[in-house]
Design a protein around this nucleic acid. Structure first.
Length: 1137
RNA sequence: GCGGGUGUGGUGAAAUUGGUAGACACGCCAGACUUAGGAUCUGGUGCUGCGAGGCUUGGGGGUUCGAGUCCCUCCACCCGCACCA
């Protein structure tokens, strides 16, 4: 009886199906084990051999755990919403629901082919309304929650409104707008709409604004990877950044917890490191640079004088000329205190515009804010010398409706912060505390004011080295600060930047670009003027969207300064060479005022406290992590359970809307975007308009459904809850999660956040979803290339039409294209002649280009010429007859076929993809070798984590192994040959060694070494002629998780009537394995020179004596005295001479 | 650019804790059986050298009695970078 895998696999697949062997119950009597594969997206291309790699590994593990007595949850489902289906719909008009259904059916068929032990009764699909009902429900949990920073957890928004009503927001600073302060009375005075606007700044799911790629021609928003080289991938239309109202998840509030709880996870260090970097916690300071008001109406400042103009018409005109002179004098000679305070008032940095030495009536006020009718007077010498009594001035000014506050010189100088704060308070008294609840609070919010630039820096210690500031070109301040002279240049530069992706902006660092705004800022400590530039290397979304550039300490700043000839201040002494920035954090700071001589650490602290003291900086922990954009202008995704009433979003479960879940995705006929770039749903007016208001027309992103699916598997048919608490308590965390590293920072971070939110709100009992993570490597494709000639022909009366297509074999192409090759000249000559013979005439400008050829037409690297000729018309260029110039320059033509010549192809490892003609379909492999061989071969390829190209060649060895394994049980002629003979010591040793290695290796997910060990075992048993039940029965069980079909067949042949899945994994026994002697490697000076066998328990002294007496050892010691004898028991011996 | 990963024979790889580098396979070479072999079996196979031997884990340097493994440095390739999922 031969190993007939086709029949065996068919038979047992049907049996498992009928007997429901893979059905898992929430039976709490056995220990649980939750084994999960990452959610596949069912693409139209189907599975290729790379996809199942992780599935096979987890399947083996799941089966092994079941044999070990665990109740194993091993489900599978589909992340069925997504862009490709919608894209396909746009192109072909087929509804995404239909194509998705088809794709899933194909995936299912392919998966079934490989023999996975999934419990399909638990399958989930994100696009199923029964599923996304709960995705929407969880979204509403996020919407109805806020993050209590003090308690470090999410809480219901209703608790927050109670807090506001009782005590305002003093204890709970607003994460969306840190300038928002109100007390209980103010809160109560807000309208319902105002209150909702405030709450929006607290919700975990909130609305804000974000930049998207907008393509006018396509009328749609594009994903980052749909934009290639600044134009749309589809059609090559221009694209630009556009600000749109979007939903966000406030994941930044979880940054610290996402960071700290990584420590308890059994994930690879690399994976944790990637998440840490993604979260990107850094500590430093926000530093505020006041803008130098070169553009204001005539005030000028201490460094740059402007012609005097009358200013606002507050002056008594009859007095103007007289007072004007005096004013100019005052302005030219400000007191120290005036200078200091002006730095805090100028350029609207308090939110309103201040003027200095401004004439009101017949008086000159030190500082005045006209809209707030606030005057600030500093008492000092100059005023003493004036004749007017302060009282008189005040009376006059108050009569004009101004409020006058006075500070003393010393007060301003020694305690600037207090003075500034007091001015702020006066200003806010005259305005509403709630100034603009709809203000954009996302990436483009810049902190405290409009007349200053806030930068975030991790190196406050380098503050004295600041030579310029750089704003992101999108920074809102750019418009207001740009001078007229620079306006055009700035506009042009910003236009250029609009076309650049973040990726390009970050990666093309060698090319320095930027533009000067014409504006200057004032250094808060040195009071020097610092030019303000914009440059693409500063991204609006990071930090404050502005940096202080320290060329002597930062490489990019250095390159920028060199490129634009900005003078560099050296604050690192000799450590800075003048050629390259010194970015090391060791050494002392030089040339830095009071920081000089300090270490980086000391200087950082000192700089922050100095900045805090003068109100120009604050300590700040910054995260690179941004809030997660949660809106997509797409059709094929979860609709939001949100309805707008008067443009204010309400959840469907609020009284104003009183809707129910799910909000079903309506069927549409067109996938065109809405009139203003909204998602296609905007066109479905009967769906959008509800009695209460208009539905949100965006849909949720791909990661919405996949952020919580692992919970649904636990209780997939629950209609009243996303998953019952008993089920989630039992199954708990995923014990082992298998998938690719490409999910390192997207999916894995979002699902961690969702889990924490559900935990905080009391819906589940654990706050991390995936206890252990196993990363599978990619299986790459191995592409094959052919080389074709491009040329022009002269000297013919009629040139051939269509032109013949000439392919040349690889080594000819190589030699032709590489002038350094010794054969180049000869090849060049010969190829011209050969092609001339084919085409006739004279060949000019001959070049060789390559093109991919389908790997099914290539055997290793040799082209199957017959097969190639039979399919070429379908797949490759169809015009003209095809000629192949073979390795030996012989020519295979349609008329004259050469049977023994070779055409060799080039090879390259790339992503496995349809477009690269290098896809290998698992179905074909399974058909040819069987699922068991396929499973074992994928494991045998190497460690699961490592990426490698697919090569079908080695599969023979694994297939041979299974045949050999089969022959231990069955003889070709006589059939089943297993005996009840007693096993020998050697056979037992082989078996138990294998059991030990295999169980240990499965536990540590080293499957390739398991396969090797099985091979060794079968080789040894076959040489021993072993057909003994005592050996073969346990062996079959041990192999069952790798090769389920063949072992099920053998298990039944051995007389069992139930499935091998319910067997128990045989335990190994060390007594069969133990050896009592070791063949020691003996080295002299670390070089192995001999092998000598000793008993394991031989005393070291005896061994030493025996080794030194050994003839080979003596020869290599060359009579030199021994210095040291190193003996590692059971391993090796080293003699040092 | 930033972050992460990987480099060992002709090929996939093994070496779990610093202790005999190349297990187990593919391929190749030679042979047996056979009408035949794309079945099966046996032997050989890192490179170099007639040989004793020498060399060898991407390159260079270091620590150690001993380094594929630890440290420094350089190089190459692959993956991710926020709207692919």
């Amino acid at each position: 009886m031969e190993y007939n895998f086709g029949e065996i696999e068919r038979k047992w697949k049907a049996y498992w199906n009928q007997t429901n062997v893979y059905k898992v119950s929430n039976d709490t009597s056995r220990p649980k084990c939750y084994v999960l594969d990452m959610f596949p997206y069912p693409s139209g291309a189907g599975l290729h051999v790379g996809h199942p790699l992780g599935y096979i590994a987890s399947d083996i593990y799941a089966r092994y755990k079941r044999l070990k007595g665990f109740n194993v949850l091993h489900p599978m489902g589909f992340d069925a919403f997504g862009l490709p289906a919608e894209q396909y719909a746009l192109e072909t008009g087929q509804h995404p629901a239909d194509t998705t259904e088809k794709n899933i059916a194909r995936y299912r068929e392919q998966l079934d082919n490989i023999g996975f032990c999934y419990d399909w009764s638990r399958e989930v699909r994100t696009s199923d309304a029964k599923y996304y009902k709960w995705t929407q429900w969880i979204f509403l949990q996020l919407f109805h929650s806020w993050y209590d920073r003090a308690a470090q957890k999410a809480r219901p928004i209703s608790e927050l409104t109670n807090i506001f009503a009782a005590s305002g927001n003093a204890g709970h600073p607003c994460p969306g707008d840190d300038k928002l302060h109100f007390d209980a009375a103010t809160w109560s005075s807000y309208s319902a709409e105002q209150q909702r606007a405030v709450l929006m700044h607290y919700r975990l799911a909130y609305q804000g604004h974000a930049q998207v790629w907008w393509c006018e021609a396509l009328g749609t928003v594009l994903a980052n990877d749909e934009v290639v080289n600044g134009v749309s991938e589809r059609g090559g239309h221009p694209v630009e950044r556009k600000l749109m109202r979007q939903w966000f998840l406030r994941i930044t509030e979880y940054a610290d917890r996402l960071l700290s709880s990584l420590d308890n996870l059994d994930w690879s260090d690399a994976m944790k490191e990637m998440q840490r970097n993604w979260i990107g916690k850094s500590s430093g300071a926000i530093v505020r640079f006041n803008l130098s008001p070169s553009l204001s109406e005539g005030e000028g400042d201490d460094t740059q004088d402007q012609p005097l103009k009358p200013g606002w018409n507050t002056a008594d005109t009859s007095m103007y000329n007289l007072i004007g002179e005096f004013r100019a004098e005052l302005k030219a000679n400000p007191t120290e205190a005036e200078k200091i305070l002006w730095q805090h008032l100028r350029a609207s940095q308090m939110g309103v515009k201040f003027r200095k030495q401004h004439i009101i009536g017949r008086f000159i006020a030190d500082f005045v804010c006209l809209p707030a009718k606030l005057i600030i007077e500093i008492d000092g010498k100059i005023h003493d010398s004036q004749i007017e009594a302060d009282a008189e001035r005040t009376a006059y000014l108050e009569e004009k409706g101004f409020k006058v506050i006075r500070f003393k010189n010393e007060e301003v100088i020694s305690n600037t912060g207090n003075v500034v704060n007091e001015i702020r308070k006066h200003l806010s008294d005259s305005k509403s505390g709630l100034d603009n609840p709809d203000a954009d609070n996302t990436s483009l919010s810049f902190g405290e004011g409009r007349g200053e630039v806030s930068v975030f820096t991790t190196r406050p210690d380098t503050i004295f080295g600041v030579d310029f500031l750089v704003l992101a070109p999108e920074h809102t301040l750019v418009d207001t600060i740009t001078t007229d002279e620079q306006r055009q240049a700035i506009d042009e530069y910003r236009q250029y930047v609009k076309s650049r992706s973040e990726r390009e902006r970050m990666s093309e660092v060698k090319q320095v670009t930027g533009c000067f705004t014409g504006a200057y800022a004032i250094h808060p400590l040195t009071h020097n003027r610092v030019p303000v530039w914009i440059a693409e290397y500063v991204l609006a979304g990071y930090g404050t969207g502005a940096i202080m550039a320290v060329p002597s300490g930062d490489d990019r700043d250095h390159a920028f300064a060199k490129h634009f000839n900005i003078p560099i201040t050296n604050i690192f002494g000799d450590q800075y060479s003048g050629e390259a920035a010194y970015s090391d954090k060791s050494g002392n700071i030089h040339n830095s005022g009071f920081l000089t001589g300090m270490s980086v650490k000391e200087a950082t602290e000192a700089a922050i406290s100095a900045l805090e003291k003068i109100g120009s900086g604050t300590r700040r922990t910054n995260y690179r992590l941004r809030d997660a954009g949660f809106s997509r202008q797409r059709y094929w995704g979860e609709p939001f359970p949100i309805v707008y009433i008067n443009d204010i979003p309400y959840a469907t479960d609020e009284a104003q809307v009183s809707g129910t879940l799910p909000v079903e995705l309506p069927h549409v006929k067109s996938y065109k975007p809405g009139p203003e770039g909204q998602g296609p749903l905007a066109n479905v007016t009967e769906w959008v308009n509800t009695p209460a208001g208009q539905r949100e027309t965006n849909t949720m992103p791909g990661y919405a459904g996949s952020s919580w699916y692992f919970l649904r598997y636990m209780d997939p048919h629950n209609d009243t809850e996303f998953a019952g608490r008993a089920a989630t308590d039992y199954w708990n965390q995923v014990d082992i999660y298998v998938g690719g590293t490409e999910h390192a920072v997207g999916h894995l971070l979002y699902s961690r956040m969702w889990t924490k939110v559900l935990y905080d709100l009391g819906h589940i009992g654990f706050d991390e979803p995936f206890k252990k993570l196993l990363n599978q490597g990619m299986i790459q494709g191995s592409s094959r290339f052919m080389y074709f000639a491009t040329f022009s022909v002269t000297g013919l009366t009629t040139s051939p039409s269509p032109m013949p297509l000439v392919y040349v074999s690889k080594s000819i192409a190589d030699s032709f294209s590489n002038p350094k090759q010794p054969t180049h000249g000869e090849t060049y000559q010969k190829l011209h002649e050969t092609i001339q013979n084919i085409v006739g005439g004279t060949i000019d400008s001959l070049t060789i280009n390559n093109t991919r050829v389908d790997i099914s037409l290539v055997n290793s690297i040799e082209l199957d010429i017959t097969a190639f000729r039979s399919v070429r018309e379908k797949q490759y260029r169809t015009d003209g007859p095809t000629y192949l110039v073979l390795e030996d320059f012989s020519v295979d033509s349609p008329i004259n076929r050469i049977s023994d010549g070779k055409y060799l192809c080039g090879a390259e490892v790339e992503k496995m993809s349809k477009s690269k003609y290098n896809v290998v379909n698992p179905d074909d492999i399974v058909k040819q070798y069987g699922a068991d061989t396929f499973r074992m071969y994928e494991m045998f390829l190497g460690p699961i984590e490592v990426s490698k190209p697919w090569d079908t060649k080695g599969i023979e060895g694994v297939h041979r192994f299974l045949k050999k394994f089969w022959r231990l049980y069955n003889d070709e002629q006589s059939g089943f040959i297993v005996t009840d003979e007693a096993p020998t010591v050697a056979e037992l040793r082989t078996l138990h060694k294998t059991l030990k290695k295999v169980s240990e290796d499965i536990e540590r997910f080293s499957f390739n070494t398991c396969v090797s060990q099985f091979m060794i075992c079968v080789n040894e048993l076959a040489s021993a002629g072993c057909h003994k039940r005592a050996i073969l029965e346990p062996l079959a069980v041990a192999l069952a998780s790798f090769a389920p079909h063949i072992t099920e067949e053998l298990w039944h042949q051995l007389g069992h009537t139930t499935t091998v899945l319910d067997a128990a994994f045989p335990e190994h026994n060390d007594k069969f394995i133990a050896e009592n002697s070791v063949n020691y490697a003996v080295s002299i000076n670390g070089k192995k020179r001999a092998e000598i066998e000793f008993a394991l328990d031989a005393p070291q002294a005896d061994i030493e004596a025996a080794v030194l007496a050994d003839a080979t050892v003596q020869k290599w010691m060359e009579g030199k005295p021994m210095k040291k004898f190193i003996f590692v028991k059971g391993k090796m011996i080293n003699v040092v001479v």
